[in-house]
Design a protein around this nucleic acid. Structure first.
Length: 550
RNA sequence: GACCCCGUAGCUCAGUUGGAUAGAGCAACGGCCUUCUAAGCCGUAGGUCGCGCGUUCGAAUCGCGCCGGGGUCGCCA
């Protein structure tokens, strides 16, 4: 539609000699009365040319050569907008494309097969995934899908660390719980993980090994505790991600950066560039030389690196592995680390512009009208598993994806539980199920069948107001997907799907599909099939099921 | 104190690169099922877009300054 007008209006501007003065833009007006597309080009020209914008608009309209089969009206409105209205046929003709592309309708190819990576979740195996991780899982997985739909070859990656302090604490906590099974008076470490899950893991160990760990050297028993706890927690993490329909392609272990010498290489490179120095027994990154406010420690005086060093090395690896687009999905608590990593990456010769960081704000849970305080150390947090148990995976995903990444998400557990039938996700799913039901009825009792060749359908017969509104929306799908992908904003799609469902419900209310006139029935049925395709494809990108019946 | 996110209807939130009369869901009120799914549809009501100044043909959107909520500033990740 825009392309069509861009050519014609562009030609008109050329005839008038205005073409190189301004950029030609079209927008979809918010109001129906203002047509299908509008351009402000006359207003933009007003200043450089020094004429009244309405007069310029008049000239442009006069110079246009449009086919009345496609464009039914051109008008000048307000301060100088030029509004265009297309014929119903212009839209309905394009419905055949939706039928032809089917499950692929909405795919575009801006990515052209380039490699992209989305890193998300990346929680270390020290406990069950939280609700916040759930938001990240939904966002990351959907961003990956969006990039796939726009032509990228996408890798979903999970980066984790099973070494270091956190894992030591995990091992100590597990061992303490294990010992408590034999002697309740054994003390629990002050900074240990309090969660009930540790106790369960300790019991597992007891079942498998009896009291064997009591008599072995502590170092050895800690090793066993860590291995068992890590394995158990990772299994649980993967299981809950699977419940949400999320599957990572790669699990990248931070350890491999050490064993392969990548960490040392990075340190050497920083030193050789004069960007690292020793002070008080630690190695510092001269971040101030990279435009940041203060220098940062990259290797502690204990000899252990801080998180920054492996993070920088890891990102360099992402570049070396050939990813041209690198998306990091982080929670708001990681904001502070980003500048350091990007600066480090840049200093080592990689283009930080290729890294796009998506920050999502926290999820707060409301229970009985009060905020649930959550801490991984304390036992009172609600896990992602709990949430899925409460409201179901579809609702969890949809809710997490409905909101812009940057907004704080308030999740009222009572409301989600009580009113789960009124969840917005049901509205969209219901439209899909309703269409499936109509299609079943049509092909059975109704005796209406769609022809093999979509061009045999007379789409001119679905030109009623509700039908045209629906048609226009459906045709926007590829643009919505591409826009959400380019902006890395998942929430645009749920908003769009709600609109589609609404337009469909109205159409359904206004028109009976299976009617005696065979041509009309066929055209309406085709419109239903197109709607179903868009809903199914859209829900697929969201990772939400598209039910045949409800 | 510095930096990041947010502030839009009673509540939860949309609002595309600045566009014309700011939208949806929930909650409230009133209608619509002998016909393909009423988990639906139609209507009513609800707003100084946190406040002020500026930029311009035009601001919820951009800039500056305040106010309010959340977050981050570690040799934790």
């Amino acid at each position: 539609m825009k392309k069509y007008l861009a050519e014609h209006v562009g030609a008109a501007l050329e005839r008038l000699g205005y073409h190189s003065r301004v950029e030609l833009q079209f927008e979809t007006p918010k109001q129906e009365a203002h047509g299908d597309l509008t351009t402000n080009v006359a207003m933009l020209l007003a200043k450089p040319i020094g004429k009244n914008p309405r007069a310029i608009a008049q000239e442009i309209v006069g110079a246009l050569q449009l086919d009345p089969k496609d464009v039914s009206g051109t008008e000048i409105a307000g301060p100088g907008f030029i509004n265009f209205r297309f014929t119903p046929g212009f839209f309905t003709r394009q419905l055949a494309d939706i039928l032809r592309h089917g499950a692929a309708f909405g795919r575009t190819n801006v990515g052209q097969g380039r490699k992209a990576m989305v890193e998300f979740v990346s929680a270390n195996p020290t406990g069950p995934l939280s609700v916040g991780h759930g938001r990240q899982a939904a966002i990351g997985d959907m961003l990956a899908s969006l990039l796939e739909w726009t032509g990228y070859a996408v890798t979903r990656e999970y980066y984790y660390n099973n070494a270091g302090r956190q894992m030591r604490v995990l091992a100590q906590s597990t061992l303490a719980r294990y010992r408590q099974l034999f002697d309740p008076n054994v003390p629990f470490p002050d900074d240990g993980y309090q969660g009930e899950y540790i106790r369960l893991i300790a019991e597992e160990i007891k079942v498998e090994r009896g009291d064997a760990l009591l008599s072995m050297p502590e170092e050895e028993s800690l090793k066993i505790c860590q291995a068992v706890a890590e394995g158990s927690l990772f299994d649980a993490i993967k299981a809950v991600l699977a419940r949400m329909g999320v599957r990572h392609d790669e699990f990248y272990n931070e350890d491999s950066l050490y064993s392969s010498g990548k960490i040392d290489e990075v340190v050497q490179e920083f030193r050789s560039k004069g960007l690292a120095y020793d002070q008080e027994g630690a190695v510092w990154l001269k971040a101030t030389a990279l435009g940041l406010e203060q220098d940062r420690v990259i290797i502690k005086s204990t000899g252990e690196p801080t998180y920054r060093l492996p993070d920088i090395a890891y990102h360099c690896e992402k570049f070396r592995r050939g990813f041209e687009l690198i998306v990091d999905v982080f929670g708001a608590d990681h904001v502070a680390t980003i500048p350091d990593v990007l600066a480090g990456v840049k200093a080592l010769g990689y283009d930080p512009e290729r890294v796009r960081v998506v920050i999502h704000q926290f999820v707060t849970l409301l229970r009985d009208g009060e905020q649930v305080k959550m801490s991984k150390r304390l036992a009172n947090f609600v896990t992602l598993d709990d949430l899925i148990d409460d409201v179901g995976a579809d609702a969890v995903r949809y809710f997490f994806l409905m909101r812009a990444n940057g907004t704080h998400l308030e999740f009222d557990l009572n409301l989600a539980k009580e009113q789960s039938e009124k969840n917005p996700v049901y509205y969209v799913q219901y439209a899909h199920a309703r269409i499936a039901s109509i299609l079943r009825f049509a092909s059975g009792e109704g005796g209406v069948r769609l022809p093999e060749d979509p061009s045999a359908i007379d789409f001119g017969l679905v030109a009623g107001p509700a039908e045209v509104v629906l048609t226009k929306l459906l045709l926007e799908f590829p643009r919505i997907v591409a826009g959400a992908a380019a902006a890395l904003e998942p929430h645009r799609l749920p908003a769009y799907l709600t609109d589609v469902a609404m337009a469909f419900h109205r159409f359904y209310h206004d028109h009976r599909v299976v009617v005696p006139e065979a041509q009309v029935a066929q055209a309406r049925l085709a419109l239903c099939a197109c709607t179903r395709t868009v809903l199914a494809n859209g829900l697929g990108i969201l990772g939400v099921s598209a039910p045949e019946r409800m």
